[in-house]
């Protein structure tokens, strides 16, 4: 393992503090590792996936004798050294041609792994279309019911989301949303519809198609624009191979969420915000509920005629003018009545 070093100056101290665990984490840094033999296709695929993942990507361009499913110690070492938590290991062998392994780590230890084989690959350069700027957040789209039911595809979806979209953002600049990564499966074979489908066998699993598109917003006559997609590349057809599910204990630790702070709850992160709505003009409107008011004790304009017991004492003896006089001298009034 790496030595525990004490920072010697403020700069290295800040750098070490940036690596400490955070409540809300940054995007995962991915390391693209070449195995002992990668082959042309996998090299290209990794290069283009890296261009989608930038700037949170590190390339290991030299060959590395690394076999994630047999010994993950070097991956764990790299994870600690580079503060990375995602690996894409490319390896092409006779038994498993054009293979890529996605490895996710938690706390410097391997969490889960998923190996895929690249069946078909169309590069970005073959699409003569505009490309998305690096560093922009992609929109993601998953199509198939297996992403909800089959453990292999649930894992794949979780991994791909973690790779491209795992960062929690509070707000986003809408002009920066310019590309879509679409993950579609082939039609579900009937054997997978049975509830007793075996998670380990990769025999009947449908192929995975990963496509990337740029978006064009067109006028639609309403507030929401119509979105047209232009293929941007890369296009990948993958098949699932070996995998390693997460250790349940470790998974439980990795899924722990921070407790919501009081101000977050008040801000509306923890619960539903009530009585707030955005109107058609985009203004925030609030509804305020006021309890029924007690109008009986309302203080209105003070007038003699409204005084308590006025009518009983005076009767209809006094006219308007006399009232004015009497107001000025209330003592006399009492004498009169007495």
């Amino acid at each position: 393992m790496l030595r525990v070093v004490k920072p010697k100056n403020a700069r290295s101290k800040r750098a070490m503090e940036a690596r400490e665990p955070k409540e809300v984490e940054d995007a995962r840094t991915a390391i693209f590792v070449k195995g002992t033999h990668t082959g042309e296709v996998v090299t290209k695929v990794m290069k283009e996936l890296m261009s989608l993942k930038r700037p949170d990507a590190i390339s290991f361009s030299k060959k590395n004798p690394v076999r994630p499913f047999e010994d993950a110690s070097s991956l764990e070492f790299w994870a600690a050294k580079n503060d990375a938590s995602f690996f894409i290991v490319g390896q092409s062998t006779k038994k498993r041609p054009n293979g890529m392994t996605f490895v996710r780590t938690f706390d410097g230890k391997v969490l889960d792994m998923c190996e895929v084989g690249v069946d078909k690959f169309v590069s970005m350069t073959e699409f003569k279309t505009p490309k998305a700027a690096p560093g922009h957040k992609p929109l993601m789209h998953f199509a198939s019911e297996l992403f909800d039911t089959h453990p292999r595809f649930i894992q794949l979806k979780s991994m791909l989301m973690d790779l491209f979209n795992g960062e929690v953002l509070e707000q986003i600049h809408l002009a920066g949303l310019e590309h879509v990564i679409s993950v579609t499966l082939g039609p579900t074979p009937p054997s997978l519809n049975v509830a007793t489908a075996d998670a380990d066998s990769t025999k009947d699993l449908p192929p995975v198609h990963i496509r990337a598109y740029t978006t064009r917003l067109l006028a639609s006559g309403v507030r929401i624009p119509r979105v047209e997609l232009t293929p941007m590349g890369p296009s990948l057809d993958l098949t699932l191979r070996r995998h390693q599910a997460a250790d349940p204990e470790m998974w439980k630790l990795a899924m722990k969420r921070p407790k919501l702070r009081k101000q977050d709850v008040e801000k509306g992160l923890g619960k539903k915000r009530k009585n707030l709505a955005v109107d058609e003009m985009g203004d925030l409107r609030g509804r305020v509920h006021v309890a029924k008011q007690d109008l009986s004790r309302l203080q209105t304009r003070k007038m003699k005629g409204l005084k308590k017991g006025f009518g009983e004492e005076e009767g209809d003896e006094s006219a308007g003018e006399e009232e004015g006089e009497e107001d000025a001298n209330p003592k006399r009034k009492r004498v009169k009545s007495g």
Binding site: A143, E145, F147, V168, L169, L185
Partner: peptide, 12 residues
Amino acid sequence: GFLTVTDLNPID
């Protein structure tokens, strides 16, 4: 929050 949509309709 993650700008992600999942279409659970079976593929035709």
